[in-house]
Each structure stands twice: as C-alpha cells, then as structure tokens.
Design a protein around this nucleic acid. Sequence first.
DNA 1: TCTAAAAGTTACAGACCGGTAACACCCTAG
DNA 2: CTAGGGTGTTACCGGTCTGTAACTTTTAGA
Lengths: 193, 193
Amino acid sequence: MTDGVAERSRPRDRILETAQDMFHKHGIKGVGVDAITEAAGTNKMTLYRHFESKDELVIECLRATAAKASRIWDEFEARHPGDKLAQLHAWVQKASELLSVDSRGCDMANAAVELTEADHPARRVIKELKEAQREKLVALCRDAGIGQAELLADTLSLLLEGARVSMQSVGAEGPSAQFVRMAESLIASFRAR
Amino acid sequence: MTDGVAERSRPRDRILETAQDMFHKHGIKGVGVDAITEAAGTNKMTLYRHFESKDELVIECLRATAAKASRIWDEFEARHPGDKLAQLHAWVQKASELLSVDSRGCDMANAAVELTEADHPARRVIKELKEAQREKLVALCRDAGIGQAELLADTLSLLLEGARVSMQSVGAEGPSAQFVRMAESLIASFRAR
DNA sequence: TCTAAAAGTTACAGACCGGTAACACCCTAG
DNA sequence: CTAGGGTGTTACCGGTCTGTAACTTTTAGA
C-alpha cells in the first residue's frame, strides 16, 4: 500500500516532486496548491512552511527539472567519454526518445508561455537556465570539432523546441516526427564544410 | 477621444478583437471575461449573448487569428504572382519580421501549451488550423520545385515554432536571432540536391 | 523519557473566476 | 410614433484560488 508518488520521504521532497509532475502535466495555472499537497499526501500549511509562495515553488521545480536534465548530460559523458561527436549524436537520440515518450515538452518553455507578466520572478530563472543549456550545447558542438558551433547549436535548439511545442498542437504525427532525420542531416552538413 | 481598441463598431466585433489582443498578450488563463468586456467598452452580459462560453470565444479568436495569417499568404501571391520560390523567401522574411516585432509567438501553439485538458474543445480546432497551415507550406515548397517538399516544410515549421517559443524564454538575442540565416541556408541546401 | 521541532487539522479571509437573472434603456425599422 | 431587439446596469450564485491563524498531534533526538 505505497503512496505511489509519495513513499516515505520528507514532505518537502514529496511536495517538490509532486509539484514538478503536476505542473508538467497540467501547467502552472492549471493546478492549485491544494491539489498538489493532497497528491503529495500532505497539506497546504506544510507547503507554505517550506516555500514562501506558489511562485517560489514554481522556481524550485524549474531548478529541479534543470538539474535532472543536467544529469542526462552526465550520462552522455559517462557513456562516450571524451568522444564529443558521439555525445552529440546521443543528445539527438535522447531528445527524440523524450519526444516519443512525453508529449508535454519543456517545462521552462511552457512556463515562459504561461507566465506572461514581464516581471514574474520565474522569468529570470527560466532565462538563466536556458542560457546555461545553450552554452552547454554550443560547447559540445565546438568540442565535437564543428566549425560554426554556435549556429549548429542554435539550430538544433530551435528544432527541438519547435518539435516539443509542435507535438502539443498537432500531435506526434506532425512535423516533429521527422526530428531525428532533420537533426542528423543538419549535423552531417555542418561537418561536411 | 477615440476608444483605441473600440472605435464605433459593433460590440461583438469589439469583443472579438479585444479578446484576440488580450489572449495574445496575457494568455488565455491570464485574462478574465470581465477584463475583456471592460477593455472592449461593453459588459459581460453582452459577451454571453454573442458567445456561449469563454471557451467558445477562445475558439473564435483562434479562427480569426488563422484568418489573418491566411491574408498574409494572399499577399505573397499578390506580390510574387506565380513565383512560388519568391513566395517562399517572402514567407521567411515575413516570419522574421513578425519575430522582431512581437515576442509572444503563435496564438495556437501558446493555447495548446496552456489548455492541457486532452478534450478541451479548442484543441481540435488548433490541430485543424495547424494542419491546414502545414499543408499550405508543403504545397508552397513543392510548387517551388523542391524535391523533399514535406521535409523542408516541416523543418521550416519547427524552426519557426522553435524561434517563437525560444523568444519567450530566452529573449530575442537567443537562438531565434539566427532564424533567417538558418531558414535561407536550409532552403538553399534543399534546392541544391 | 522528556522536549522541541515538524507536521497535520480546521477554519477562514479576501480576491477572482465563469456564468446568469432581472430590469432599464436606447435606437432604429416599420 | 411605436414596437422590439440590441445593449447597458446591477446584483448575485457557486466555485476556486493563494495565503494565514490557531491549535493539536506526531516524530525524533538528547
């Protein structure tokens, strides 16, 4: 009779994990703190003892998501130590796997779409995290020996971001279905010159 | 002393136009019907006499947006009659113009991100409209004499969709800044083979 | 075992939401 | 001039939202 999401961890961890999951699935404005705490097997007061507001919880969730993504990058290095080109291909492969398994795309991009207020506290965090990810991909492309590393990295970024949002509007059979082919031929053409 | 948004048109038209603008700027869940009717210089009862629900209003707004986009396509044909390749370049140019002028991206994609319920009435409309746009771009590529027209059209779609969402998370100086260069070299490479 | 912190419980405040009812008004078509 | 449809106004319903107060229970460490 386990709790599924909850298990027996500390309330703060359960709240954070549950909130990540629910924000991801239903959007930030689509889920209230009551629903989160109930799903996490706790209550609202406990949430507000650990997070000073819903916005702050959102930010913590985004940071946690980025940390998970970072762990995936560590896997690339572990599986293909030193071989940056193989890591780049692994990146494409992993991106397409996630596309086929999850139809809700990137939490940070989705949050940016939802939180339209220019001064929303989450916006600067989103920008920071996205910029860090961009730099990582640029570095990977450069270390893989590609000339115009920034341009390739940015193109791959836009393709992936587009695929993730396209899935949500037209579904998996839309343009996003060809993501791997696009990305691979793009890498090939950048390597050729 | 004009009303700005309102002028002296019929309440229904004012509501539709104002709602389009406000949904676009602040998101669907970010604006209430009260705010819309007030900005449109009318009241809630009048809105509900013309639209049976907020969801229905959202759908009408999406259709109106798609109709505006369709008028832009008519411009391409008017400016470059018969020259499909020139129209494709015009499409790239226009897309980048819109990117630099408006940072909130595509209403349909944004709505798909916000409205997470799988059976939301707006979702099927979004899918229909997006599929229609996809077919238009595929036809344009094919008529421009490009071999793998579907693949080029889908790649361009993902690039643009990605650019529009990337702008919202990292801003205009991010990867989306290179959209024109990416799109043009992509077209060139498809034409070359 | 005793204590203190963490967590649970209940109730509530105050705001906003989508949607409706009842009624008064105005403007135009006949 | 008059009838009637479109519009404006006010008030309200039931629900949901974030966030807080006050109090009780559980848990864990010395």
